[in-house]
């Protein structure tokens, strides 16, 4: 582990976040970087809570509707 990693226990995690930001095409100004990484850390640490067994009732399948375009529907 590098000296930098010893000083910042999140260094590896932050490096991953920096790679994700770069992959998204964001060139984060150096001066703004600490806050972005802090926010990214907080976000990424919560996403494990999203995973779980769900039923079909939880499908996000209702984000658009064809009812207004159904044959015979008023236009």
């Amino acid at each position: 582990m590098s000296t930098e990693n010893s000083a910042n226990p999140y260094a590896d995690f932050d490096a991953e976040s920096a790679a994700l930001l770069a992959a998204a095409g964001l060139q984060v100004p150096a001066d703004l970087r600490p806050g972005v990484l802090s926010e990214a850390r907080a976000l990424r640490q919560t996403v494990s809570l999203l995973r779980g067994t769900r039923t079909a009732a939880a499908e996000p399948a209702n984000i658009f509707s064809l009812i207004p375009y159904a044959a015979g529907a008023a236009t």
Partner: peptide, 28 residues
């Protein structure tokens, strides 16, 4: 401003799967 940039830009680290899982959890 610093806060707006930092809070919004952080959203770039989320994956598509993260968002879909969030919508599934939301329904539950």
């Amino acid at each position: 401003g610093r806060y707006a940039y930092q809070r919004i830009a952080a959203g770039a680290v989320l994956s598509a799967a993260d968002l879909v899982q969030a919508f599934r959890l939301r329904a539950e």
